[in-house]
């Protein structure tokens, strides 16, 4: 689906007023016939970004497939808070196997659908960052490499939240977690390590890779809808703040997510066939400090101020801005 990005600067905020859009461009959630893949009454914490992201993403898939879909879920917060029997919050066929195999289970669902000639039914797999970048990484790479007809959604809250906040391969530099505590010579997660899964996905040359954030739900829906218009392996990496693990105010989840985008720490882009094909430019870059200061997991960087760490994190943001040409004035780096 081609779409035009709509800008609403007149309100002085970044709010995308749904009602100002043409009927057809409004979000799925704005429609009276919205599907509500994930019902209310689940057990997520207040302000859970993952719950929000999952509902928007799966509702968009439901709409794109006229409800002909199956979801496979890895173990993690989303699975645990949404599914306790007999109160499943899911309105779609949903399968949880174990923590590390969701991409392969989804490949199996897709294979069975091929075997039965039911290619109108589509498959989505989803998991947290731990399930995706760590324990399920091998299965995910296999699914990409075979180009199985699966959309994989990663809800990145940057740690293992379900087990009580331990670091994952996606935990950012210098963040506190229970296995990267704020002690020792380099408090928090060590600098300069971690896994950038969107780029690894791109390296597989799969048809569609995108990043998205709960800061821009319309963009998230649009990307999911686009992904569903394509066959083959697709990957969307969604940034979802977790108030519990990030030690942030549950009421500020969207703001935190937005600052991640506007600082350049979480670039929003799309890639087709392994090449970046679109990006969401930043109107005005905010210093990373504004983002970090809202989260208790970075508290040790401010008291006393750890100038070196702050500068290093700023450099990561600056590099992203350069790499993805997020500011109109800066040309893209060779990607």
């Amino acid at each position: 689906m081609s779409y035009q990005r709509v800008k609403f600067y007149q309100t002085g905020t970044f709010t995308v007023g749904n009602r100002l859009l043409d009927e057809g461009d409004r979000t799925v959630q704005a429609r009276t016939d919205r599907s509500n893949s994930l019902n209310s009454g689940h057990r997520a914490c207040q302000g859970c970004g993952e719950a929000l992201g999952a509902r928007y993403a799966l509702d968009a898939v439901m709409r794109a497939t006229q409800n002909k879909m199956v979801a496979v879920n890895a173990t993690g917060c989303l699975e645990v808070f949404s599914s306790p029997y007999p109160e499943s919050a899911w309105q779609i066929p949903w399968l949880h196997s174990v923590f590390g195999n969701a991409p392969a289970v989804a490949s199996g669902v897709a294979a069975a659908l091929r075997a039965k000639g039911k290619t109108d039914i589509r498959v989505v797999a989803q998991g947290g960052d731990g399930a995706t970048v760590d324990i399920g990484f091998g299965c995910l790479s296999g699914m990409f490499e075979r180009n199985d007809d699966v959309l994989y959604l990663c809800y990145d809250n940057e740690a293992y939240m379900n087990t009580g906040v331990q670091r994952s391969g996606a935990t950012p530099a210098r963040a506190w977690t229970n296995t990267t505590q704020a002690v020792g010579t380099e408090p928090g997660n060590p600098m300069g390590i971690g896994k950038n899964l969107p780029r690894i996905a791109m390296a597989h040359g799969i048809p569609f890779v995108a990043t998205a954030s709960v800061a821009d739900l319309h963009d998230l829906e649009t990307k999911v809808t686009k992904a569903m218009s394509i066959r083959g392996a697709r990957y969307i990496h969604i940034h979802v703040p977790c108030p519990l693990g990030w030690k942030s105010d549950p009421a500020q989840t969207i703001k935190v997510a937005r600052l991640a985008v506007e600082s350049g720490l979480f670039p929003l882009f799309e890639a087709e066939g392994g090449v970046v094909s679109d990006r969401t430019p930043i109107r005005k870059q905010v210093p990373v400090e504004q983002y970090l200061a809202l989260q208790g997991r970075f508290k040790h960087l401010f008291n006393p101020r750890d100038e070196e760490a702050l500068a290093a994190i700023q450099a990561i943001a600056d590099r992203n801005i350069h790499l993805y040409a997020l500011l109109p004035t800066k040309p893209a780096m060779e990607t």
């Binding site: 087990t163 009580g164 331990q166 229970n178 296995t179």
Partner: peptide
């Protein structure tokens, strides 16, 4: 170590 309940407090 790799975290999993109820072992997490030990490895943390």
């Amino acid at each position: 170590c790799y975290p999993i309940s109820p072992q997490t407090h030990i490895v943390e």
